[in-house]
Structure formats: structure tokens, C-alpha cells
């Protein structure tokens, strides 16, 4: 792999710092949007070969067949996919937390897929907040495809990973979120496309220069 096609250790550290700033700002805004206190923490940035992506995601996201995984693609100079995983034991609590006062009771009872809809909506907001804040700091604008929901099964994950070009490497930005006082948490992973790397290298340089 050519060195210009990978982020070096310093660039990964700058990216991690940028995520720290982005998520600090995102959590304050999310609190206002969702009316729930939220912590975004443990940001980390690393590069993972696409051939090892499946095992990496399964292990670091603690995926099981019963997990719910929301996936959303984003487009622009900064492009790729984000996945958000809700552990199975908290799904019902997240649904009731967000939908209790929002949706008419009759709809909740009669619309099939309502639970998935609530998870998609909260997933879309959390992913949008994280990517939106990172894009803002990198001085670019992204657009999004509608999110989709799947399980943490091996076949659902294969379908997701097949979109990434092999034998390239993916830049992984990962973080954990938790809702204060509700004991609810989950994980978000932003997987940046290989074709974003050159743009990202330049943008990270500009980002650092703005602080010098």
C-alpha cells in the first residue's frame, strides 16, 4: 500500500483530536434536540484493511444476531458509511424513551416496523450529528442516503462490507454514546471510503494550520 494512501500516526492523532472537539459540540446540541442528556466518549481513529473489517466490526461493536444495526451512507469530499449498534438489552428502553410522548398510541400498536422506525430515527439523528460536526470542522458539506436497519448477523454485515473496495484500507472513527441517568448506551463507527483519504490528508493539514 502506498504511503500517500494511508493516514500516518500523526494524522490519525489529529483526526482523533478533531473527533474530540466535534463530539463535545455534538453532545451539547444533541441534548437540546433530543431533550435527553447524552455523553459521546472514547473517540478513536484507526486504519483497518477491508479484508479484516468484518472481524474488526464484530468484535469492537460486540455484534450478535439480536443487535440492531442502523447504517447510513454519506457523500461528498468526506464520504463513506456510518453504523450505529444498539445492544439488544437496551432496544426496548430506547424505543419507549423516545416514542412514549411522540407517536399516537394507535399507531404504535398497528404499524408494523414501528420499533425499527424509532431506532432508524434516533440512529439517523446521532449519526447525522457526529458526521455533521466532523464535516463542519473539516470545512465541507456532506449529503446522506436514507438510513437502513439490519441485524448484527454475519450475512447483514457481509452485505455492508461488500460496498468497500478491496484490497484497500478503511479509516475507522469510533465512539460510544450513553444517555445520562437512563443506563442506555451504544456504539457508532464511521467508516470512511478509501477515495476520501487524499482529501482527508489535505483537510487535516489545513485544520492543524488553523490552530498554528
Amino acid at each position: 500500500m502506498k504511503s500517500e494512501n494511508i493516514l500516518n500516526v500523526t494524522e490519525l492523532l489529529i483526526l482523533q483530536e478533531l473527533m474530540n472537539i466535534a463530539f463535545g459540540s455534538a453532545s451539547a446540541d444533541l441534548e437540546e434536540v433530543l431533550d435527553i442528556s447524552i455523553d459521546l466518549k472514547v473517540p478513536a481513529a484507526e486504519m483497518v484493511p477491508v479484508t479484516k473489517l468484518k472481524k474488526y466490526i464484530q468484535e469492537s461493536m460486540a455484534l450478535t444476531n439480536k443487535s440492531s444495526m442502523v447504517e447510513e451512507k454519506f457523500w461528498g469530499d468526506f464520504n463513506g458509511s456510518a453504523i450505529l449498534v444498539f445492544p439488544v438489552e437496551i432496544q426496548k428502553n430506547i424505543i419507549s424513551l423516545l416514542s412514549a410522548h411522540d407517536y399516537p398510541a394507535t399507531d404504535m400498536e398497528h404499524i408494523e416496523g414501528m420499533d425499527s422506525g424509532v431506532l432508524l430515527e434516533i440512529g439517523n439523528i446521532l449519526i447525522g450529528a457526529c458526521i455533521g460536526k466532523i464535516s463542519e470542522l473539516l470545512n465541507t458539506v456532506v449529503t446522506y442516503s436514507p438510513p437502513s436497519i439490519g441485524s448484527g448477523s454475519s450475512s447483514d454485515l457481509d452485505f455492508f462490507i461488500d460496498k468497500f473496495e478491496q484490497p484497500s484500507s478503511a479509516i475507522i472513527l469510533k465512539m460510544e454514546f450513553s444517555f445520562h441517568q437512563k443506563h442506555l448506551n451504544g456504539k457508532i463507527m464511521i467508516i470512511t471510503s478509501y477515495n476520501s483519504i487524499n482529501w482527508l490528508k489535505k483537510s487535516l493539514k489545513l485544520f492543524m494550520e488553523s490552530y498554528e
Binding site: G113, M114, N124, G128, A129, G132, K133, Y144, P146
Partner: peptide, 18 residues
């Protein structure tokens, strides 16, 4: 959903199914 669009520049998708 509108607030998240104003705040984050993200998109919101309101599906017919829901």
C-alpha cells in the same frame, strides 16, 4: 427532526411506513 437538520446539517427521513 427539523432541529437536527438545522443544528447538524444532516438529513431527516420521515417514512410513510411510520
Amino acid at each position: 427532526n427539523c432541529s437536527s437538520v438545522f443544528r447538524f446539517g444532516s438529513f431527516a427521513f420521515l417514512a410513510q411506513k411510520i
